[in-house]
């Protein structure tokens, strides 16, 4: 019984982190039509930056916000000065993001060495709540709470504001969005900054739990990719559902069928690609 509870809590924790990571990935994919292969790098570099801010004496949440802000700047620079030069050449753009992800991985290795870093949990979120013999680690629950708060904020932004409607219009039909006067290229920059910031934030929030180590980027990226293929590119509800599906499949798969962990993760993705290429909630086929 307790094992199942632990697995379930780990699953929703991972689901929450994956949502923070993949919400931006999904918006970028939906709007710019490219899988941003440096999204895992934003997560890892963001986590490292957060650890440095912590070491400099920042509080945990200020460190997370500072890291998110610095990744937003980096994301904005990458979009404006590199990706934009390759506008309309999707393959070249994808390869560029791949190249940048290798550069960032090496740079991180240089700056933070190869030793894993595990920032400590924020002091007021340590420990666990015990209810009728069941143990709920507070920090994991806090991650879920933060993810839900972010999901609501993003939903308000995307669903209830004019900018959000413009982003969705761009996802629906980018050329016509431009023809009606929407500055789609500015939306690209905005969405790229936002996605990078969210990924970095997820990286910091996840770091006391996952720890930070070389290769973390390459571990997170495929998960974001599966989430978005499951949920549908450009769809936030899709990213939310996909994140929790993958959170559960990952944890229960590893516990129950450790040899088949990747099969369990990727089979649903392959099925969706073949049977419903627009994803569970998506509007456009990949």
């Amino acid at each position: 019984m307790n094992l199942w509870l632990v697995l379930a809590i780990n699953s929703i924790t991972l689901g929450g982190l994956l949502f923070l990571l993949s919400a931006g990935f999904s918006l970028i994919f939906g709007l710019m039509r490219i899988p941003n292969l440096m999204h895992g790098s934003f997560f890892m570099l963001g986590a490292y930056m957060g650890s440095t801010f912590l070491a400099k004496g920042f509080g945990f949440w200020p460190a997370a916000l500072a890291s998110a802000a610095s990744m937003a700047v980096l994301g904005g620079l990458v979009e404006r000065f590199l990706l934009r030069r390759l506008a309309g050449q999707e393959l070249a753009q994808v390869l560029l993001t791949l190249g940048l992800s290798f550069i960032i991985a090496d740079a991180c290795l240089m700056v933070w060495t190869g030793d894993p870093i595990q920032p400590s949990t924020p002091p007021d979120l340590r420990g666990a709540i015990i209810r009728s013999g069941l143990v709920f680690p507070i920090y994991r629950l806090a991650i879920v709470g933060v993810a839900i708060a972010m999901a609501i904020a993003l939903w308000l932004l995307i669903d209830k504001t004019r900018i959000g409607a413009m982003i969705r219009a761009g996802v629906d039909d980018a050329p016509i969005a431009r023809v009606v006067g929407i500055k789609v290229s500015q939306l690209f920059t905005l969405v790229f900054c936002l996605g990078a910031a969210l990924a970095a934030f997820a990286g910091v929030v996840g770091s006391p739990y996952l720890s930070i180590y070389p290769g973390l980027d390459a571990e997170m990226l495929p998960l974001a990719l599966i989430v978005v293929i499951l949920g549908g590119a450009g769809s936030l509800p899709g990213a939310l559902l996909g994140s929790f599906i993958i959170g559960f499949l990952y944890n229960f798969g590893q516990a129950m069928f450790p040899d088949l962990a990747y099969v369990i993760l990727f089979v649903p993705m392959v099925l969706v690609l073949v049977l419903r290429p627009q994803g569970l909630f998506g509007r456009v086929a990949l």
Binding site: R168, A169, V179
Partner: peptide
């Protein structure tokens, strides 16, 4: 060009399907 006062009703309509009617007008 849109800011210069040209508007298009495209062939096949190409309305923003996942936006509400109101939002289709707001964004334009």
């Amino acid at each position: 060009i849109s800011a210069h006062g040209v508007a298009l009703v495209p062939q096949g309509r190409r309305i923003f399907r996942s936006l509400t009617v109101r939002e289709n007008l707001v964004v334009a």
